[in-house]
Design a binder for these strands. Structure first.
Lengths: 224, 224
DNA sequence: CCGGGTAATGAATATACTGCTGATAGAAGA
DNA sequence: TCTTCTATCAGCAGTATATTCATTACCCGG
């Protein structure tokens, strides 16, 4: 699950990020209005935490933009403003929730989980492809209904590929999805190769009827 | 069992909190109308103790809100007002009970327990999984119908895991559920390890056919 | 068709970190 | 008081992940 945190106060950023990371989410951050807008238009996030008061512009404009481009992200607004007006504007623009500073981190966590639960509950939380089943809630993958133990990275990779079956996935987007945007050297995909290798082995050993094929120079694709 | 106490008189708050904590409940407090409203919308409590006269607003509005959002919390109203009118309004809004100040702490305890008993009685009060049975009312766990003595933390952990069997539970949410949100250092799960260790040992010694497996870097899961 | 260069794979190792244990000390309750 | 529960500590073991290196497969221009 990818979360974008748009917030200029760096210390708050830190705390929130750590806490959510501990829950197993991948958290990216944006410090300014521009950066937030940019990330939002380039990437898809499962949940966006949005501060209203940002250097460079009004956070609500980001929300508006999100609505305009039809991205279905789930947005939780964070704001020092307790004003009813802002709250109404925010919720009218389709925000899912609203938190006023200061707040307990535990509260935020609960909120995020609730929003994501709603999302996954409405949608499908089980991915299926050939004889493979992946349950996002239970963090389990099954082949022919017998469980397959995957570690976290392998699991994330498999989920991403299954969600985009038969579609070409560039190495960089895969890496970004699984590792976040902390790529020191964007040219180096050795760690990806490693994980792909292990995942392939596990898939093969358990008799999965899918394969991860490499498209030379472009990326990977999961085929049935 | 989580209880929310919405009450502005800090000394009364203290007394009630201590007393209920001694009974083994996790008690959170809210000092003001706003804080109460906030906590109620963020969390689920098993019981809410609600003062009518609050700084910032009328406690009955909180009750109304609770009813509107369909949360099935059990509410006990605490008020200095002896007015029949308030009482009727409160009970009409679905409050379970009504206490007028001053009251004996023992009486409050008794009522809380009675409300919770009713709640758990209406709902499910026995969790079952493989050859383990846990009775929420009696605070007892049985393996093959022979009792297993658990202390409070172990019991809470087991209950939470059993309620979410086969589902991954992050360490932080488990910790939050069992210890409340008073986590000084969110990185430190040593106390959790300790309890998990003891719980595992007891489960094993009594021949339980479930195991608490650790999902590396993510959390725990109870498997049959 | 060939060969240079790049991409992908595989195995093997190093490292950092998570989770576990047993002992112990402190706190709470009887 | 004594007992039980809970928290804390240090060290250990095991795992996931990163990294390295060698090998193989692939693409493309000549």
């Amino acid at each position: 699950m990818n979360i974008l945190l748009i917030e200029d106060e760096t210390d708050l950023q830190e705390v929130v990020k750590d806490s959510l990371a501990k829950e197993g989410f991948l958290v990216e951050t944006a410090d300014t209005f521009q950066e937030g807008l940019k990330k939002i238009s380039f990437y898809d996030y499962d949940c966006v935490l949005l501060d209203i008061t940002l250097p460079g512009g009004d956070g609500l404009q980001i929300l508006e933009h999100l609505k305009n481009i039809g991205k279905s992200e789930n947005v939780i607004i964070i704001s020092a403003k307790d004003s009813v007006d802002d709250k109404i504007r925010g919720l009218n623009l389709g925000a899912d929730d609203y938190l006023t500073k200061p707040f307990h981190i535990a509260e935020l966590n609960a909120r995020v989980k609730s929003v994501l639960r709603r999302k996954t509950f409405e949608g499908k939380n089980i991915l299926e492809c050939a004889n493979i089943k992946v349950d996002l809630n239970e963090f389990m993958a099954h082949v022919n209904d017998i469980p397959m133990t995957l570690n976290r990275k392998e699991f994330d990779i498999l989920v991403y590929l299954m969600a985009n079956r038969n579609r070409l996935i560039s190495k960089s987007s895969l890496a970004e999805k699984v590792w976040g945007d902390y790529m020191d050297d964007a040219d180096d995909f050795e760690f990806l190769y490693s994980q792909i290798k292990n995942l392939r082995k596990k898939l093969k050993d358990s008799g999965a009827e899918v394969k991860i094929s490499a498209m030379y120079g472009m990326g990977y694709k999961l085929e049935a």
